[in-house]
Design a binder for these strands. Structure first.
Length: 275
DNA sequence: ATAAGGCCCTGACCGC
DNA sequence: TGCGGTCAGGGCCTTA
């Protein structure tokens, strides 16, 4: 599923194709995919806009437009944004089509229909609750420590909380906990200072590795939930130590990787390396 | 305030 | 081969 590294890859690789392009026509085929404004207003307002800046906040793509408005895209589970030739036919999972002034079209596809698009003048109301960017200087060990203290929920659940570690999802949470040697069921408040320091470092390391590997791609079907904008697969899945490896030997100690459901999400961990 | 559970969706997968 | 049931899962909402 697309998490911070996947979204970062998306934004970086979309920029060369979208920078300076103007939207000349837009159609929405499934209206709920537009969170703000209405689908009709979206189609009217996006026409004439030019893509001028490309950013990311946590798992949100921020596509800046020449009017000052921002097109925010969240891919959730199975969303894709692709720049395609003009004659590319929308398939049954294509919910938004934007025709560009250079003859290409921008398609938003999403089999699960969980993703959302916002077209707004002010991004703040949508992004205001997010924690600091985990790769920024603002995200310190102290910052993380303050948000874990007095929390009794399992650390795995807390890492998925976007007000604690923004941009971290199920995969990178499992990988970070393994790298830090921390068991996913540990209550947040039970972590010692040294463990939080290790966890803080581990979050940054796995996210940076994910970006370097252009994200992770899983599955081999239409639900292959992440591809780079050019259709290529990411490479991070080859580096996983625990995620999706239930029953396979831990690369460190050979003990089979275990799986447990925590906060309605599957968690993968090594019972020997993670205390 | 925190924590837990439900909901949105539908392709994949399993058992019969 | 076909059918029904179950699962996955991010973020938001409701409930306790």
């Amino acid at each position: 599923m697309p998490e911070l590294p996947e979204i970062e890859t998306f934004v970086r690789e979309l920029e060369p194709d979208l920078a300076g392009r103007k939207v000349v026509d837009a159609a929405v085929h499934w209206s709920k995919i537009i969170a703000v404004p209405t689908a009709e207003e979206f189609c009217q307002q996006i026409v004439g806009e030019e893509f001028v800046s490309f950013g990311r906040r946590a798992k949100y793509m921020l596509l800046g437009l020449n009017s000052g408005a921002t097109l925010i895209v969240h891919l959730r589970m199975t969303g894709h944004l692709h720049v395609l030739p003009a004659d590319a036919q929308p398939d049954k999972h294509t919910h938004v089509v934007m025709r560009l002034d250079d003859g290409h079209t921008l398609h938003y596809q999403d089999p699960r229909k969980f993703g959302r698009l916002w077209l707004v003048g002010d991004v703040e109301p949508i992004l205001s609750k997010l924690s600091a960017e985990p790769l920024s200087a603002e995200f310190t060990t102290k910052w993380l420590s303050e948000r874990l203290q007095s929390r009794n929920a399992p650390i795995k659940a807390l890492l998925l909380d976007q007000t604690i570690s923004a941009g971290v999802g199920n995969i990178y949470a499992d990988e970070a906990l393994h790298l830090a040697g921390i068991h996913p069921t540990r209550p947040g408040a039970s972590l010692k200072a040294g463990e939080i320091k290790k966890l803080h470092a581990a979050i940054r390391i796995v996210l940076q590795q994910g970006i370097a590997k252009h994200g992770s791609s899983l599955g081999g079907s239409v639900l292959t939930n992440y591809r780079r904008p050019n259709g290529e697969l990411g490479q991070m899945q080859d580096e996983f130590q625990v995620y999706g490896r239930e029953g396979e030997p831990c690369h460190t100690c050979d003990k089979p990787i275990e799986r447990l459901v925590i906060a309605q999400r599957s968690s993968h961990f090594c019972g020997k390396c993670q205390k």
